[in-house]
Amino acid sequence: MLSYILRRLVATVPVMLIVAVLVFLMLRLTPGDPAAIIAGDNANTEQVALIRTRLGLDQPIFVQFFIWLGNILRGDFGESFFFKKTVAELILGRLEPTLSLALFTIVIAVAVAVPLGVLAAYKQGTWIDRIVMGFSVMGFSVPVFVIGYGLIYLFAIKLNWVPVQGYQPLAQGFGGFIHRLILPSVTLAVIYIALIARMTRASVLEVLGEDYIRTARAKGQVEIKILFRHALKNAAVPIVTVIGLGIALLIGGVVVTESVYTIPGLGRLTVDAVLARDYPTIQAVILLFSLVYVLINLAVDLLYTLLDPRIRY
């Protein structure tokens, strides 16, 4: 087991290296010159060239790459072209909102979706099942920003229950933190609820046909325990897989949601950095995201062994 985890962690190194190369090359292949953006509309070519030299952008690409890579290996992610801070500072400052949003979203999604999916499977073919599945199709089809603005209109503007937008750090009090976080999290959770509920339903439905479910009934077990004790744990592997994928996909969703609710998180940072062609920041954020992605996958694989004793690495 331990050797498996070690092997998997070692295996992340080449993955990260490939990501680094791809990100670096792709950024430099996209049109747009960071020096020109920093210099502004009124700058002349000499000023732009000066800035370019200062940023090291006049060097050949592979020289730039190895300087960057060398710095990363020393733990230095460079300085943002645009925000006049080190990239590390910048990301650390934006980490809390994004992390809170992502975690809260996935907690809501799982807490709502799994029971809904189990219920739909148990009531297969009834109107309850149809409502859950209908909601699920809707959750898939409506874009995040539509749901976001719809919820803002209803809960912030009409009912006035929550603020329209903004973020309050956890350090300033839990109440205010949750109060401002709830609407964006729900917005973001909708699609994951749809996804996870569907997967839960399908997976539980399959397990409910198994012989050991019949055995549990023959023992006189009550339905609720049959569903959650016997069925759900057996159905868990595909559900956990989807939740893991969901967390990874959340990163993309966070970008839009943070923009809609003006939350100063990594998603906003990414958008701003892309608009400003802020190479060091974009590279670092994407590297971070892909590391998270790889680690989530590892966590999901390890979780399998807890859920199913037959799976051993």
């Binding site: 198994e210 012989d211 050991y212 019949r214 055995t215 549990a216 009934r217 023959a218 023992k219 006189g220 016997h230 744990k233 057996n234 859920l307 199913d308 004793p309 037959r310």
Partner: peptide, 19 residues
């Protein structure tokens, strides 16, 4: 079930919960 009447099944491979 389980107290006054009980049942065993054909497939011992699948009649027990694997997890």
């Amino acid at each position: 079930r389980g107290t006054r009447m009980a049942m065993i099944f054909q497939e011992p491979m699948t009649a027990l919960n694997p997890v």
